[in-house]
């Protein structure tokens, strides 16, 4: 045993070196978005330029850029959906004018946290791409949050899973709305408050955006009713909401631009000034 230890102390350096260097590389690739991206993209460059045998590999590695282009396409398609249009029906001569109200910009999540009470998400879109403060953000499974600050190339989103976040949300079935808050328990549930007790509720009811703010079009999925109870003496339900968006695995999201935002803001300012 003593001999073995001596042998290790004398010649174990290389083994320790390899082991720790391996551990470091694992940490680097897993924890640094930059390196991970560079790793993937340079692997793509290298594999693309080598022999045919590597074709399968390079195809697999370039799935990333295919996904990018699909996300762009999705953003385009979202803007053709009915709830993105502002429909003006002029009854007098029955002409219908349809104007675009919402457009969508695809974005990639480059930094994300779920383990804090004030979680934030960083996206690779900024002023350069026309992102502004207070724009809504959603993913393929539901609402994500609201743009909080913007720099030239990036923006930071305050997601639902941030204790500072507050938004109104509607029960799709009954059209009653309440306020959605996060209780900092875990990143897959939130609470819906202020739903009066005479409403009929069922597990699995959809909760969607209300469309009362200028941030989100109405009807974007937020989550489903997971559990609800009525405390004695209270007139309102406490509803546990299972969030649609999986914040643990968030890769692509869409930023919502409301083309009427300025107009609405001015109008509302006017009212509050009075």
């Amino acid at each position: 045993m003593g001999n073995l230890l001596n042998l290790f102390l004398k010649y174990g350096g290389f083994v320790v070196f390899l082991a720790l260097e391996g551990l470091c590389m694992y940490l680097v690739v897993n924890n640094n978005q930059d390196q991970e991206e560079i790793y993937v993209s340079s692997a793509r460059v290298i594999s693309g330029s080598t022999l045919q045998a590597w074709d399968a590999t390079s195809n697999f590695l370039s799935l990333g850029s295919i996904a990018d282009s699909l996300a762009t396409e999705n953003a385009e398609l979202y803007s053709h959906m009915e709830n993105s249009k502002f429909i003006q029906t002029i009854l007098i001569d029955t002409a219908e004018v349809i104007e675009q109200q919402f457009t969508y910009l695809e974005a990639k999540v480059i930094k994300n946290s779920t383990n804090k009470t004030n979680n934030f998400i960083t996206l690779n879109r900024g002023l350069k791409h026309g992102v502004e403060k207070k724009m809504g953000v959603f993913g393929k499974h539901g609402m994500v949050g609201i743009v909080r600050s913007v720099s030239t190339n990036f923006c930071v989103v305050m997601p639902i899973i941030n204790v500072q976040y507050k938004a109104s949300a509607t029960l799709k079935k009954s059209n009653y709305f309440g306020s959605l808050v996060w209780d900092a328990q875990n990143a897959s549930t939130a609470k819906l408050e202020a739903i009066p007790k005479h409403i009929e509720l069922a597990k699995g009811d959809s909760i969607v955006t209300s469309g009362y703010s200028s941030i989100f079009p109405e009807g974007i999925m937020i989550g489903v009713v997971d559990e609800f109870n009525l405390e004695s003496g209270s007139n309102f339900y406490t509803i546990d909401v299972k969030l649609g968006t999986n914040f643990y695995d968030l890769k692509y999201v869409y930023i919502i631009k409301n083309l009427f935002a300025k107009e609405l803001e001015l109008l509302e300012e006017e009212v509050s000034d009075e």
Partner: peptide, 30 residues
């Protein structure tokens, strides 16, 4: 030598905590 490398790793990974760059300084230390 193994202890030397381990100490290099410890120094590096501790610095990484400040730099928020897990493994980068550590690998150089190793």
């Amino acid at each position: 030598h193994p202890l030397l490398i381990l100490l290099g790793f410890l120094m590096g990974i501790s610095v990484d905590f400040f730099y928020d760059s897990p493994g980068v300084h550590a690998s150089a230390g190793v």
